[in-house]
């Protein structure tokens, strides 16, 4: 083992690569969204693979993976979207524990499916904790690495490895336990919030339309195209404003779907505005936020109306799948 330099060099930052963890709690009421990894399943598995504790900070890269040069010995895992990955030009598998040494360079080719890569490094990315989390919120430049996406030449601090018996190098997550990355993502959704503002017919259109993900789809929200909403006639209530889509400004749940102009709904995601005055018609259940996180511009999504019980079952299913991964990794043996 070489001495720990405790750094990884970002040779190329990619398109939009940020430091993320499970996100910040407790600041929503000040207008600060949780941020955090958008595909929580892939993020958690990446940490498991390298033996990091749950909640360690990892990298989330959208569309274009970064190029990383290691300066000490680490274990690394890549999960999330599908892309050919190399270490020093040699192809290496994803969803598997990799070992790198000082000077090794991890590189990505173009994505073949999905939208977001997760890269966990043993020890975790050790940027300072800010308001209880290491997650980056780029909109106001807080948290993460200097509050921004990574740029060429950045040097990221890495932490000390904490877990005594991490998974063995080469341990892998079997295909069946990885998320499918379908061309049309099905998003289970609890209809409600301000859905009273739009007609029943519009809500039928909402759940029967295949919506296309537009170019305006990022960590703040996904703007979708494909149908339109008609509003119910009304006398605007005091304070709401005169537009048919306006309501008295209220809090927006993460995953809620707002309909500003009636034609392009927006699904609000991890870095979204926390409140505002547009009607929202429902909320994507937490388990399926992982799915929309892997939908890319040009992909299609569909909304399926579900109740709370189904939402909680979906959540429990995801949890059970994570536990199956944990068990499977344990069965493959610990790191020597």
């Amino acid at each position: 083992m070489s001495t720990r330099s405790g750094e990884v060099v970002v040779v190329r930052g990619g398109l939009h690569t940020t430091v993320q963890d499970t996100g910040r709690d407790g600041y929503y009421s000040l207008g600060i969204p949780p941020s955090g990894a958008m595909d929580r399943f892939s993020y958690r598995v990446a940490n498991m693979l390298v033996g990091n504790p749950d909640g360690a900070a990892a990298l989330e890269a959208t569309y274009v993976g970064p190029t990383l040069e290691f300066t000490d010995d680490r274990r690394v895992a890549v999960t999330g979207a599908s892309a050919p990955v190399t270490v020093n030009g040699e192809p290496v598998p994803t969803w598997q524990v990799l070992e790198v040494r000082s000077g090794d360079v991890l590189e990505f080719s173009m994505l073949t499916a999905g939208a977001r890569l997760y890269i966990a490094i043993s020890g975790g990315v050790a940027v300072p904790v800010y308001l209880g989390a290491r997650s980056t919120y780029t909109l106001t430049g807080l948290g993460g690495f200097e509050g921004r996406r990574l740029a060429d030449g950045d040097r990221l601090p890495l932490g000390e490895e904490e877990i005594a018996d991490p998974p063995r190098v080469g341990s892998a997550v079997e295909e069946a336990l990885r998320p499918d990355l379908p061309d049309v993502a099905l998003l289970r959704t609890m209809i409600g919030l301000c859905s009273y503002r739009v007609t029943e017919e519009s809500m039928r259109v909402f759940t029967s339309t295949e919506w296309k993900v537009t170019k305006d789809a990022d960590r703040i929200g996904y703007r979708l195209h494909g149908g339109r909403f008609d509003f119910v006639d009304r006398e605007p209530p005091h304070g709401a404003g005169s537009d048919p889509a306006n309501v008295v400004d209220l809090g927006y749940p993460l995953g809620s779907i707002q309909v500003p102009g009636g034609d392009e709904p927006i699904v609000l995601l991890n870095d979204a505005v926390t409140a505002g005055g547009y009607a929202t018609v429902g909320t994507v259940v937490s388990a399926d936020l992982d799915r929309i996180a892997q939908a890319k511009t040009g992909d299609r999504v569909r909304f399926e109306s579900v109740d709370l019980r189904t939402a909680l079952e979906a959540r429990a299913d995801r949890h059970a799948r994570l536990e199956r991964v944990r068990r499977a990794l344990r069965e493959q043996g610990a790191h020597a």
Binding site: Y63, V64, L111, G298
Partner: peptide, 9 residues
């Protein structure tokens, strides 16, 4: 020459 990202060109 290919594009690595989706969007409008």
């Amino acid at each position: 020459i290919k594009t690595a990202m989706p969007g409008v060109i």
